[in-house]
Amino acid sequence: MKSAATTTTTRPGSWRSILASRPVVMALTTITFMVLYYQTLSNIQIDRSADCGTASCTSNNNNIINNHKNIDGNSNGISWLQLSPEEAQTGDVKSSTTDTGIDGGGRLGVYPGRRPKTVQYILHEAHKRYERMLKKRQEMLDFYGWGKSGFTEWHRVGYFWLYFPASFSCPHEIERVGPLDDGGKWVCGLSLYEEQPRAKCVMYSFGVNHETRFEGEMLDRTDCEIWAYDASVNQMGPETQGRPKVHFTSVYVGKEDRVDPQGNNWKTIKTLMAENGHDWIDILKIDIEHNEYQTLNRLMDDYEGGTLPFSQLLIEIHVDPQFIQFVDFKRFWERLEGFGVFPWWTEVNLVPVMFGDKPYASEYCWINTKGGAKNILIHNF
């Protein structure tokens, strides 16, 4: 006879059976996990707020700025975003451009690996990228050996594209001024000249002919004063005639002060600056049909061991076997680099192509990374 075993029977539908069911157990486990997960996230967010939601965040960002502000000696703060007093205190950036709908950005310092971009930091990074390009240039020269003596008919413009790319950076906005066709120029940091953080802006323009739409727009938009020189014409184009801030002289710029057999006056840049009482040029524009080499080589001779006296150089560079050989061109280019002047923009002049010829010139825009307080482009405003 079997003994009666004592058992506890759970009636269907009781609260114990409900709690013991698999779906309920899984649901309770999931809820517990989610609570712990969101609590962890909340703690992380609190830690971020502690770092970047108070003045300590601004202090941290200022330390980053200070670490990169000593390239040519000065920094006035964050250049990439204008902060309100509240935003500067909390680090919580809420500014936006209401007319375009552009968002002002997020909390400073939160995005991993990013830093507030001072002008000096941008230049520092541009130098590193340019060094990599220089290494590649030398490797190409060693490997191919192209153009070691002169520019060939078919490959002359190719040397620009292959050996001398515009690999540096303008640390401000860039904008084309003047016409979209031949005669227009790309300018680095035009807003700096429009806003006038300095007492004056000095611009030299060599080779104006009758194409002065670039100069005209610069006069319309800035307080720049222009000194223009070109002995091939007796006056400038209509955009500049009669304007008080334009000074035109029928003189050629070149490698020496002289009068040629045709009676034309030639003067060096240094001589013209001395005559005008200038020690610095904000914008130097040169379009003088092959004479750019002798003109700038003389300028580099005059300032050897020092700093070239301009902030940016806008120049059309011509390559023609009659005027320059490749080895001399390379030496000319490397001299500019040695002065801390680097190209940030280029475009091939395609006007000859319209007439069935091959292109033989390129527009280049350069920035001088030296000059201290005189050079408006290497400071934060």
Rank of each mutant, 00 (worst) to 15 (best):
E363P: 03
D328R: 05
S95F: 07
E337D: 14
R11P: 11
F33A: 13
A4I: 10
S250Q: 12
R129I: 06
G356Y: 11
S169A: 04
W161Q: 12
E86Q: 13
Y229E: 00
Q235W: 03
S84W: 09
D51Q: 14
P171I: 04
F342M: 08
Q312W: 02
R176V: 07
Q312P: 04
G305C: 04
L41W: 10
R298P: 01
L314I: 13
S362A: 14
E316P: 11
S311L: 06
M218W: 06
T7P: 01
Q325R: 12
V110R: 11
D282I: 02
P12C: 05
L350W: 01
I378K: 11
F326N: 00
T8C: 13
K200S: 15
S169D: 11
L19P: 01
R16M: 11
D301F: 04
W186P: 05
G178H: 08
E289P: 13
G178Y: 11
G216I: 03
R107L: 03
G263L: 05
S96Q: 12
S75K: 03
F168V: 00
N380Q: 08
S17E: 05
Y204H: 06
G145Y: 06
P179G: 09
P359L: 00
S95L: 08
I315L: 10
C365L: 08
L108Y: 00
K255C: 04
H124P: 01
S169W: 02
M354Y: 14
L284K: 09
F206R: 05
L313G: 00
F381D: 08
W344T: 03
T40D: 13
R331V: 05
V35M: 10
D257S: 15
K285W: 10
G338I: 04
W280Y: 02
C52Y: 13
N375C: 07
Y38F: 12
F214T: 03
G184W: 01
A126T: 03
L162I: 12
L192K: 14
M218I: 15
W80Y: 13
E139G: 00
Y111T: 03
T212C: 06
C365R: 10
T54Q: 11
Y303Q: 04
S311D: 01
M140V: 14
D51R: 15
I44Q: 15
Y204N: 04
V177A: 02
T249R: 06
I44L: 14
V93M: 07
I324Y: 02
V246F: 08
P321R: 09
E131V: 14
K267C: 04
G338E: 10
V353L: 15
Y229D: 01
N276P: 01
A126D: 05
N375D: 07
V35T: 10
V341T: 10
T58P: 07
G305N: 06
C188N: 13
I64H: 12
H127L: 14
G277D: 08
E87W: 04
